[in-house]
Design a protein around this nucleic acid. Structure first.
Lengths: 224, 224
DNA sequence: TCAAAAGTGTTAGATTTACACCCATGA
DNA sequence: TCATGGGTGTAAATCTAACACTTTTGA
């Protein structure tokens, strides 16, 4: 087992960009870095890739340890590998983004980890190249939300059309026309109206909808 | 400098997917692997990331060593990190794709490296996860070619509209209407008609065009 | 003279955008 | 009763897709 021994090894880490939707805003979970170098700086949450785990597993483990949640929607953003990106050592990092429903996230756990939801339009300067990671993640996500049913990951399983619209608007940073939006929703049979009414958001009450993945899989035509 | 010493290091490599356009087909440069493990298997060309070079630099160096060409168009595809992806050791690899004009590539150099242009529709089973890398690269490139002026990277600096159309068709794997295609080209002022005529492809001769990056930068609206 | 590729407009259909009012209800 | 968010349709404008013939010239 010495095939590549003339080459040097490096540390590889994962950084997770966790997007959440709250108060009609798209937010990211960041915290103060609790280790050197860079202790105290705003930072994404991350971890090192172990010798016996895949990079996807490392990212899923990192996500789990921060949120307590399994099976989150998660996609790779890319590898970041400037020589000096980490002020301490040479570390190559692979960024992943994840979408979670803020309500699923235990507040206690959040505080224990010392992380906070910060609006994407309001991010501070972050450790290393983490701002760049978030920018790239956002840009990928903006593309994706138009053609893949991922908006639902940011909402409870039952949601109103206005909520869905607000997610879409928050991600893209611009408002859309209510009637045109709903017209498009009506064409997607996998966004099912339920009998349930949400009374929290208005006096009149709004119909609750649900994403039906079975129907989606039969005819995966998503277009917003 | 012992910040991360409790964590393990891994080898990181880069693999380059070099796309070329020839005989109206999109092709990829692959060769027989000349080292163990996997000696003799069809494989992408790759290299290890050095301790003191960025991953982008490693990819550019690898590209240069294979093609002799600098400043090639090159973009990251992503990181591939299954534990067992390499049969010999744990190696995380970062894939990049590049677009080159086949005519710029010295045939001698190609033969010296033992690599060949193979049609993307006709690829053999490749070493490790290299087929997956190519698939992903293609999918990214297909998106990109619709909204970014990258088709030109696969052509000589002077090209006919038919050539440009064939590139587009080869990448997307489907034919498009000649008149509609040309209508869209006419709307992009940065695709300039020159006085020159190409007589190689037809008796009548076809006007040669050129991509003007200055004009493009002033009004970067590319849409095919 | 003819085969082969270059070049050129129009029209129908589909998609997208803009836009304003009534409804139901709890406070 | 009124303020708040929920819910609904139409028409103009734009974009997309389909389609066929003439030109030039070297062999």
């Amino acid at each position: 087992m010495n095939y590549y021994s003339e080459h040097s090894k490096v540390w590889v880490s994962v950084d997770v960009i966790i997007f959440g939707f709250d108060e009609n805003k798209l937010k990211v979970l960041i915290g103060r870095r609790q280790m050197d170098p860079g202790r105290g700086e705003w930072s994404l949450y991350g971890g090192f890739v172990g010798a016996d785990e895949s990079i996807d597993d490392a990212a899923a483990r990192t996500l789990k340890s921060l949120t307590g949640l399994n099976h989150l929607y998660m996609r790779q953003v890319g590898a970041f590998g400037s020589v000096d990106r980490d002020p301490g050592e040479r570390v190559i990092s692979i960024a992943y983004y994840s979408l979670i429903n803020v309500k699923d996230y235990d507040e206690r756990l959040r505080r224990d980890h010392g992380v906070e939801w910060i609006e994407i339009d309001n991010l501070p300067k972050l450790y290393s190249d983490h701002n760049k990671m978030i920018e790239q993640a956002l840009s990928i996500m903006r593309q994706k939300i138009k053609t893949q049913p991922i908006s639902f990951q940011l909402l409870p399983s039952l949601f109103t059309l206005t909520q869905l619209q607000r997610v879409y608007e928050a991600v893209n940073g611009e408002e859309v026309d209510k009637r045109n939006f709903r017209k498009r929703i009506k064409e997607m049979d996998f966004i099912e109206k339920t009998e349930l009414i949400d009374k929290k958001s208005s006096k009149r009450g709004a119909a609750l909808y649900r994403f039906n993945r079975k129907i989606y899989n039969e005819d995966p035509n998503f277009k917003l």
